[in-house]
Design a protein around this nucleic acid. Sequence first.
DNA 1: CCTACCGATCGGTAGG
DNA 2: CCTACCGATCGGTAGG
Lengths: 209, 209
Amino acid sequence: MAKTSARQGTAPRNYPKGERRRAQIIEAAFTAFGQVGYRNASMVQLAAACDVSRAGLLHHFPTKESLLEAVLEERERQDDAHFFGSGAVNRDGLEYFASMIRLVAHNQANPLIVSLFAVLSGEATAADHPARPYFVARYERTRRQMQLAVDDLVRRDLLRPHVDASGLAADLIAFIDGLQIQWLLSPDAIDMPDHLRKLLRGLISVELP
Amino acid sequence: MAKTSARQGTAPRNYPKGERRRAQIIEAAFTAFGQVGYRNASMVQLAAACDVSRAGLLHHFPTKESLLEAVLEERERQDDAHFFGSGAVNRDGLEYFASMIRLVAHNQANPLIVSLFAVLSGEATAADHPARPYFVARYERTRRQMQLAVDDLVRRDLLRPHVDASGLAADLIAFIDGLQIQWLLSPDAIDMPDHLRKLLRGLISVELP
DNA sequence: CCTACCGATCGGTAGG
DNA sequence: CCTACCGATCGGTAGG
């Protein structure tokens, strides 16, 4: 499963038209999966939305699952770009959580991003769902990374008394995920970055950078 | 929409065979909706699972939506039974959250209950989903009720310093919802009532009853 | 990328 | 006019 490059799959390098089509299809699938989920999204409607025949769509993505994989990689790339681009060195817990607030604010400005994971992660809890292994691995990795940031705050004695640092990473991830559901259902009642900021102020004894 | 009785829909009173069939169908749909979601569940498979013809199924639930409605009512009834049965008077914040921990423990022993809402709430964020109005209303109501419990703790000065009580209800609901996703994906890595207990200990300055 | 197809399954409705 | 179903089939659409 090792990938040496961001590009993968059926698209060769330097066919600009094919690359653009590919990107267009991924974007349309990103939207569709986020709106109705993976299983309920239809390849026929996706092809129509991209002004391509079904056979044309299948040229770029021979199966629906290959398209799902590409969409998840695209989403992963966006998260990475945000984190690495913002100078959030993993070792600094304060920088990590400041970056997290910015990411949540960025996502709130882009409902499609929020929708994709809220819908897919629920759907992918099914035992036979093709995205289940991806989400299991992603949550394990995210918990491990965020717990490093938490542990850094513990070491520097920046957590408030009575805050239990064990499992705090899972708690914060859960909080953000759950908030997305409430925001998608009642966007006017919930301000996600505001909730996260307030919650973190109750956990961390200094102001975030 | 006022319901004077728990019984509703097409089933009249005192047809024991019909009532049993109805309950069996609701249970099967409860499972199916929780496993693959509403849209992806099929009336044909549901009928087969209940050893009933499709026409027989449609006699009890003339549309798929009517079955969804019955399933959501059944789930609501289970929650209510838990809360009222445990003597959790809404006005007492400590009792409320103690009851909440028991509910989460009960749900963790019954994955189907967890699955149903985790899958449906994600699916129902879609603009045209038949369960969207239900979930919007349910979250609004739950936030309001839980905030009453939070406000009671504020009045009695039982929240730790630096805890922001405004919007805390939404935060706790989000936390529980998000934890369910992680638990469904990695049941061995997450213990939901344990996480909730530890989190509440960081918020509330006295031990829960 | 196209046309021309496949086996199957969808939710809902008919008369009896 | 009731309940509790039955076998058959409608027009459309699914992924490949």
